[in-house]
């Protein structure tokens, strides 16, 4: 599994995996919170397959409303997992916008991916669920870092 995918345009990692005894965790980076969330989505699919081999053939749009940014991250990834499980799609490209709507945060996203095809897509781990364990979003030197631990 890759642990150090770099963005082609800027010299920033997209995500970095870390070890959790029974499961897997990662930090997802971004110049904006949106980019950090996009990379959090990508990292989750990287756990399931090699996303390099996932072509952007199918497009989906989703909207999520949550009460705070951590819940928004949890709900975002849970929604991706749900779509993966029910529509049999691996996603590999994400475009997110986040706005404040009254007391809530609203996330709208365009997702690009491909129907699962195991003759082409590697079968790695099945993700059972997104956890709240140590979930947080930090900002250091204008870089956003989101920490996620997945239950495998």
């Amino acid at each position: 599994m890759k642990t150090n995918t770099k963005n082609s345009s800027q010299n920033m990692k997209k995500f970095k995996f870390f070890e959790v005894t029974a499961d897997i965790g990662y930090w997802a980076y971004g110049h904006t919170i949106e980019e950090s969330f996009e990379n959090a989505g990508l990292a989750m699919f990287e756990v399931m397959t090699n996303t390099k081999h996932v072509s952007p053939y199918i497009q989906k749009e989703i909207t999520i409303l949550s009460e705070d940014t951590v819940s928004l991250l949890y709900d975002w990834l849970s929604e991706l997992l749900f779509l993966h499980d029910t529509e049999f799609i691996f996603f590999s490209k994400f475009k997110i916008e986040i706005s404040k709507e009254n007391e809530n945060y609203k996330l709208t996203a365009k997702l690009l991916g491909e129907k699962i095809d195991y003759s082409k897509h590697e079968q790695l781990n099945e993700v059972k669920a997104v956890t709240f364990h140590l979930m947080e979003i930090q900002k250091h030197n204008n870089i956003y870092k989101s920490r996620v631990i997945l239950d495998l």
Binding site: M1, F17, E19, V20, T21, A22, D23, I24, N125, L152
Partner: peptide, 11 residues
Amino acid sequence: AGRKMSRSSAK
């Protein structure tokens, strides 16, 4: 049994 080694270490 329960894991003693992470999946990435095992790999």
